[in-house]
Design a protein around this nucleic acid. Structure first.
Lengths: 162, 162
DNA sequence: AATATTTAGTTGACATGTAAATTATTATCA
DNA sequence: TGATAATAATTTACATGTCAACTAAATATT
């Protein structure tokens, strides 16, 4: 009796791959793929003695321009979040790629800017990074790329995590 | 003259979003999405005092069964890799969820097994983890799920990074 | 105005990721 | 066989992620 039930279940599992395992496959696939691409990207910027995280901070600050950004605003825009940001900024400041100053209008905030040296360094990296991104997904055509982007957005939109 | 060239370029950029930025969008989207889902999944297993990495090790060892696996085989099957595995195993051994023994046939290797307590713990987690995976991608239909899985596989297959 | 709450940021403690150096064992080959 | 190379795993050192506790400044409350 349990044997029969079991084999029927197994036949079902084989015919229509159960939704469970499709979900699992998608989530695991997402993890694996992201990890590979992250390592790949890390190698590009590490050639210039930056970690991927440091690189991201600089990108954000370059985007912010002359205004600069308060520390936690940078953190909020990072892929990863919160208090590690202080230590990251410390290191970037030591490398003279970032400048910090307490905001006079709200003395709780600390404003951050990218330095000219930081801008130069990013300039050097723009091309390799672009190339690497393109290479990382070069096996997808334009249509597939757009589909992937859309599916990923859909997953994020509806995720109550955030 | 440069103004004219520029605006033409800009029109082009607007019409067909350049491949560059599509690639970038896909790669960044992948990072962001994976990070969110990773945090989500971490919360599920942390409720039972496991890190996501520890959970993955236990899953791999459960899959290996009675034979057990050499340490580096476990590492190779992990989403992340190498020497962190020793520390992870140390902790799992302390928690009595894993047992280790030097392999008699090749004394360089250390074989690892999941303990009955480990199997029990995983059993408790199977359901919540399955549920979480399903929830994480519930906004995608079956067809979309399959498409996503395929696209991710395609990216990994052709990635020379390995 | 005095007190309490919220906000911005930092610090400390601990887990993990990664690279380089090290140890023990096994395999190779001259 | 003896020296050398390769393999399996560990250790050390350092960067980052995360949580909890903390400080300082600004807001809100009574």
């Amino acid at each position: 009796m349990p044997g029969k039930t079991n084999s029927k279940l197994q036949r079902e599992l084989k015919q229509t791959k159960p939704f469970e395992s499709l979900s699992q496959e998608a989530v695991l696939g997402l993890f694996r793929t992201a990890d590979r691409l992250r390592r790949r990207a890390a190698r590009v910027v590490e050639a210039h003695d930056l970690s991927l995280e440091q690189y991201n901070v600089l990108r954000i600050l370059r985007g912010a321009g002359k205004e600069g950004l308060p520390t936690l605003e940078v953190a909020a825009r990072m892929i990863e979040e919160f208090p590690a940001i202080t230590r990251l900024m410390d290191k970037l400041e030591t490398k003279q790629l970032v400048r910090r100053e307490r905001c006079p209008r709200d003395r709780r905030q600390v404003l951050c800017w990218i330095t000219p040296a930081g801008v130069d360094l990013l300039g050097t990296l723009d091309d390799p990074v672009r190339r690497n991104n393109r290479e990382s997904v070069k096996m997808l055509g334009e249509r597939e790329l757009k589909t992937l982007i859309t599916l990923l957005e859909k997953v994020r939109e509806d995720d109550k995590t955030q």
